[in-house]
Amino acid sequence: MIAAVSGRVDSVNATSFEQELSKAMEGGSSRLVVDCGELSYISSAGLRILLLAVKKTRAQGGGVALCQVQDHVREVLEVSGFTRIMTVRDTVEQAIDSF
């Protein structure tokens, strides 16, 4: 399943991000690719949702792969230790191939 996220994800809209990701995972696929090409900002409220998605997909034998991550967002992922628990690739195709 491929989901795209854009703009800002912070404590104001983290809940709708969570709902969108849940919807994307409803189809039963445990492999989730998140296209972050248009994501300009993520705070810990958004990271929390990503972590939940990682836990959920891994429990089903899958995982989460991110792609097209902007530099600032990548720094946030690195400082948070998230690059250890999810795959980060340059392109959507590479993210899909990482599974």
Binding site: S44, V54, R58, G81
Partner: peptide, 20 residues
Amino acid sequence: LPDFTLPVDERPIGGLGIHL
């Protein structure tokens, strides 16, 4: 302090804001 050596299923949800 967050513990990044924990496996995914043991990582707490939250607690990253101040660390960032």
